[in-house]
Design a protein around this nucleic acid. Structure first.
Length: 204
DNA sequence: CTCTTGATCTTCT
DNA sequence: GAAGATCAAGAGC
Protein backbone atom coordinates (compact mmCIF):
# COMPACT_ATOMS: atom_id res chain seq x y z
CA UNK A 1 0.00 0.00 0.00
CA UNK A 2 1.47 3.28 -1.10
CA UNK A 3 1.19 6.10 1.33
CA UNK A 4 -0.16 9.24 -0.24
CA UNK A 5 2.39 12.02 0.01
CA UNK A 6 1.40 15.29 1.58
CA UNK A 7 1.64 18.10 -0.97
CA UNK A 8 4.88 20.01 -0.60
CA UNK A 9 4.62 23.24 1.34
CA UNK A 10 5.00 26.33 -0.83
CA UNK A 11 8.62 27.33 -1.09
CA UNK A 12 9.22 30.67 0.57
CA UNK A 13 10.38 33.10 -2.11
CA UNK A 14 14.14 33.63 -1.94
CA UNK A 15 15.43 36.98 -0.74
CA UNK A 16 18.58 38.84 -1.71
CA UNK A 17 20.88 40.30 0.90
CA UNK A 18 19.40 42.91 3.21
CA UNK A 19 19.95 46.45 1.97
CA UNK A 20 21.15 49.09 4.40
CA UNK A 21 19.60 52.48 4.20
CA UNK A 22 22.88 53.83 2.79
CA UNK A 23 21.79 52.10 -0.44
CA UNK A 24 19.45 55.05 -0.89
CA UNK A 25 22.11 57.70 -0.23
CA UNK A 26 22.73 58.36 -3.94
CA UNK A 27 21.10 60.33 -6.71
CA UNK A 28 17.40 59.55 -6.88
CA UNK A 29 17.90 58.92 -10.60
CA UNK A 30 20.34 56.08 -9.81
CA UNK A 31 18.37 54.66 -6.91
CA UNK A 32 14.99 54.56 -8.66
CA UNK A 33 15.93 52.02 -11.38
CA UNK A 34 18.08 50.09 -8.89
CA UNK A 35 15.03 49.48 -6.72
CA UNK A 36 13.23 47.58 -9.48
CA UNK A 37 13.35 43.91 -8.50
CA UNK A 38 14.23 44.58 -4.86
CA UNK A 39 11.90 43.15 -2.22
CA UNK A 40 10.03 45.41 0.18
CA UNK A 41 8.58 43.86 3.33
CA UNK A 42 6.57 45.44 6.15
CA UNK A 43 6.23 43.07 9.09
CA UNK A 44 7.20 40.28 6.70
CA UNK A 45 4.50 41.12 4.16
CA UNK A 46 5.22 42.52 0.70
CA UNK A 47 6.83 41.67 -2.60
CA UNK A 48 9.04 42.67 -5.49
CA UNK A 49 9.16 46.34 -6.40
CA UNK A 50 8.09 46.47 -10.06
CA UNK A 51 7.30 50.18 -10.53
CA UNK A 52 8.64 53.44 -9.05
CA UNK A 53 8.89 57.14 -9.90
CA UNK A 54 11.72 59.58 -9.12
CA UNK A 55 11.04 63.04 -7.65
CA UNK A 56 13.93 65.49 -7.29
CA UNK A 57 13.68 68.80 -5.44
CA UNK A 58 14.45 70.68 -8.67
CA UNK A 59 11.37 69.06 -10.22
CA UNK A 60 8.15 71.14 -10.10
CA UNK A 61 6.14 67.94 -9.58
CA UNK A 62 8.01 67.08 -6.36
CA UNK A 63 6.42 67.84 -2.99
CA UNK A 64 9.78 69.26 -1.88
CA UNK A 65 10.01 71.75 -4.77
CA UNK A 66 8.68 74.69 -2.74
CA UNK A 67 10.71 73.98 0.37
CA UNK A 68 10.06 72.21 3.66
CA UNK A 69 6.59 71.97 5.22
CA UNK A 70 5.35 69.87 8.14
CA UNK A 71 4.26 67.22 5.63
CA UNK A 72 7.45 66.89 3.58
CA UNK A 73 10.11 67.72 6.18
CA UNK A 74 11.49 64.17 6.22
CA UNK A 75 12.54 64.63 2.59
CA UNK A 76 15.01 67.28 3.77
CA UNK A 77 16.67 64.87 6.22
CA UNK A 78 19.02 61.92 5.64
CA UNK A 79 18.47 59.22 3.02
CA UNK A 80 16.89 55.86 3.78
CA UNK A 81 13.77 57.03 5.60
CA UNK A 82 10.13 56.71 4.61
CA UNK A 83 7.90 59.60 3.53
CA UNK A 84 4.18 58.74 3.62
CA UNK A 85 1.57 61.27 2.52
CA UNK A 86 -2.21 61.40 2.10
CA UNK A 87 -3.32 61.28 -1.51
CA UNK A 88 -6.67 62.72 -2.62
CA UNK A 89 -7.82 62.69 0.99
CA UNK A 90 -8.24 58.92 0.93
CA UNK A 91 -5.10 56.93 0.14
CA UNK A 92 -1.60 56.73 1.59
CA UNK A 93 1.44 56.80 -0.68
CA UNK A 94 4.91 55.52 0.26
CA UNK A 95 8.23 57.14 -0.72
CA UNK A 96 11.88 56.40 0.06
CA UNK A 97 14.02 59.47 0.79
CA UNK A 98 17.24 59.57 -1.26
CA UNK A 99 20.48 61.53 -1.52
CA UNK A 100 22.47 63.46 1.03
CA UNK A 101 20.73 65.37 3.78
CA UNK A 102 19.05 68.50 2.50
CA UNK A 103 18.69 67.49 -1.13
CA UNK A 104 15.03 66.52 -0.60
CA UNK A 105 14.48 63.86 -3.25
CA UNK A 106 12.42 60.69 -3.00
CA UNK A 107 11.25 57.62 -4.89
CA UNK A 108 7.51 56.91 -4.97
CA UNK A 109 6.81 53.19 -4.71
CA UNK A 110 4.03 52.56 -7.24
CA UNK A 111 3.58 48.80 -7.57
CA UNK A 112 4.67 45.46 -6.10
CA UNK A 113 4.48 41.88 -7.28
CA UNK A 114 3.09 40.17 -4.17
CA UNK A 115 5.36 37.40 -2.85
CA UNK A 116 5.11 37.36 0.96
CA UNK A 117 1.91 37.28 3.01
CA UNK A 118 -0.50 37.21 0.11
CA UNK A 119 -3.36 35.99 2.31
CA UNK A 120 -2.90 38.94 4.67
CA UNK A 121 -2.88 41.35 1.74
CA UNK A 122 -6.10 39.89 0.42
CA UNK A 123 -7.74 40.32 3.81
CA UNK A 124 -6.78 43.98 3.92
CA UNK A 125 -7.79 44.66 0.32
CA UNK A 126 -11.02 42.67 0.23
CA UNK A 127 -11.95 40.50 -2.73
CA UNK A 128 -9.22 41.05 -5.27
CA UNK A 129 -7.23 38.99 -7.66
CA UNK A 130 -3.49 38.89 -7.09
CA UNK A 131 -2.76 41.28 -9.93
CA UNK A 132 -4.82 44.00 -8.26
CA UNK A 133 -3.43 43.65 -4.73
CA UNK A 134 -0.47 46.04 -5.08
CA UNK A 135 -0.74 47.49 -8.62
CA UNK A 136 -0.82 51.15 -7.60
CA UNK A 137 0.64 53.43 -4.93
CA UNK A 138 -2.56 53.56 -2.87
CA UNK A 139 -3.26 49.86 -3.30
CA UNK A 140 0.09 48.67 -2.03
CA UNK A 141 -0.04 50.80 1.13
CA UNK A 142 -3.44 49.33 1.91
CA UNK A 143 -2.18 45.79 1.27
CA UNK A 144 0.88 46.33 3.48
CA UNK A 145 -0.99 48.20 6.20
CA UNK A 146 1.02 51.42 5.72
CA UNK A 147 -0.35 54.67 7.18
CA UNK A 148 1.07 57.99 8.35
CA UNK A 149 2.30 56.07 11.40
CA UNK A 150 4.88 54.47 9.05
CA UNK A 151 6.30 57.82 7.91
CA UNK A 152 9.75 59.09 8.86
CA UNK A 153 11.00 55.59 9.77
CA UNK A 154 14.32 53.99 8.71
CA UNK A 155 13.97 51.43 5.94
CA UNK A 156 16.58 49.04 7.37
CA UNK A 157 14.81 48.61 10.72
CA UNK A 158 11.57 46.81 11.62
CA UNK A 159 8.82 46.92 10.61
CA UNK A 160 10.53 47.66 7.29
CA UNK A 161 13.00 45.47 5.40
CA UNK A 162 14.53 45.87 1.95
CA UNK A 163 16.31 43.04 0.13
CA UNK A 164 18.46 43.29 -2.98
CA UNK A 165 17.18 41.77 -6.20
CA UNK A 166 18.63 38.36 -6.90
CA UNK A 167 18.68 38.06 -10.67
CA UNK A 168 18.93 40.49 -13.52
CA UNK A 169 16.24 43.06 -14.09
CA UNK A 170 14.99 44.26 -17.45
CA UNK A 171 14.10 47.86 -16.70
CA UNK A 172 12.00 50.20 -18.78
CA UNK A 173 11.22 53.88 -18.26
CA UNK A 174 8.51 56.29 -19.28
CA UNK A 175 6.59 59.40 -18.25
CA UNK A 176 5.13 59.57 -14.76
CA UNK A 177 1.48 58.89 -13.98
CA UNK A 178 -1.17 61.32 -12.82
CA UNK A 179 0.84 64.54 -12.74
CA UNK A 180 0.39 67.76 -14.68
CA UNK A 181 3.67 69.57 -13.86
CA UNK A 182 6.80 68.33 -15.63
CA UNK A 183 4.62 65.64 -17.17
CA UNK A 184 7.05 64.95 -20.02
CA UNK A 185 10.01 63.77 -17.91
CA UNK A 186 10.71 60.00 -18.23
CA UNK A 187 11.25 59.34 -14.55
CA UNK A 188 8.93 56.36 -14.13
CA UNK A 189 10.73 53.02 -14.02
CA UNK A 190 9.33 49.52 -14.28
CA UNK A 191 10.15 45.86 -14.66
CA UNK A 192 9.66 44.94 -18.27
CA UNK A 193 6.88 42.45 -18.84
CA UNK A 194 5.58 42.56 -15.27
CA UNK A 195 1.89 41.80 -14.92
CA UNK A 196 1.71 43.81 -11.69
CA UNK A 197 2.21 47.37 -12.98
CA UNK A 198 -0.27 50.14 -12.20
CA UNK A 199 -0.49 50.85 -15.95
CA UNK A 200 1.38 49.58 -18.99
CA UNK A 201 4.39 51.52 -20.22
CA UNK A 202 3.99 53.12 -23.63
CA UNK A 203 5.47 51.12 -26.48
CA UNK A 204 9.01 52.01 -27.47
C1' DC B 1 -12.88 47.84 -23.58
C1' DT B 2 -12.99 53.30 -22.39
C1' DC B 3 -14.85 57.28 -20.07
C1' DT B 4 -16.86 59.72 -16.01
C1' DT B 5 -17.58 60.54 -11.29
C1' DG B 6 -17.59 60.49 -6.15
C1' DA B 7 -14.96 60.03 -2.07
C1' DT B 8 -12.69 63.65 1.06
C1' DC B 9 -7.66 65.38 3.36
C1' DT B 10 -3.73 68.61 2.86
C1' DT B 11 -1.55 72.30 0.76
C1' DC B 12 -1.38 76.30 -1.83
C1' DT B 13 -3.40 80.57 -3.98
C1' DG C 1 -11.73 78.03 -3.14
C1' DA C 2 -9.09 74.84 -6.12
C1' DA C 3 -5.95 71.23 -7.15
C1' DG C 4 -3.74 67.13 -6.24
C1' DA C 5 2.25 61.68 -7.19
C1' DT C 6 -5.63 57.79 -6.50
C1' DC C 7 -9.07 54.14 -6.68
C1' DA C 8 -13.37 51.73 -7.57
C1' DA C 9 -17.81 51.56 -9.40
C1' DG C 10 -21.03 52.53 -12.98
C1' DA C 11 -22.40 53.94 -17.71
C1' DG C 12 -21.74 53.52 -22.44
C1' DC C 13 -19.82 51.31 -26.71
Amino acid sequence: MVQKLKPAAPISPSLGKPLKRSFLDRSVHEVAPDLIGATLLVNGIGGLIVEVEAYHHTDPAAHSFRGPTPRNRVMFGPAGFTYVYRSYGIHWCLNFVCEEEGSASAVLIRALEPTHGIAAMRRRRGLHDERSLCSGPGKLTEALGITIAHSELPLDQPPFALHARTGKADIISGVRIGITKAADLPWRYGMQGSKFLSKPFAAI
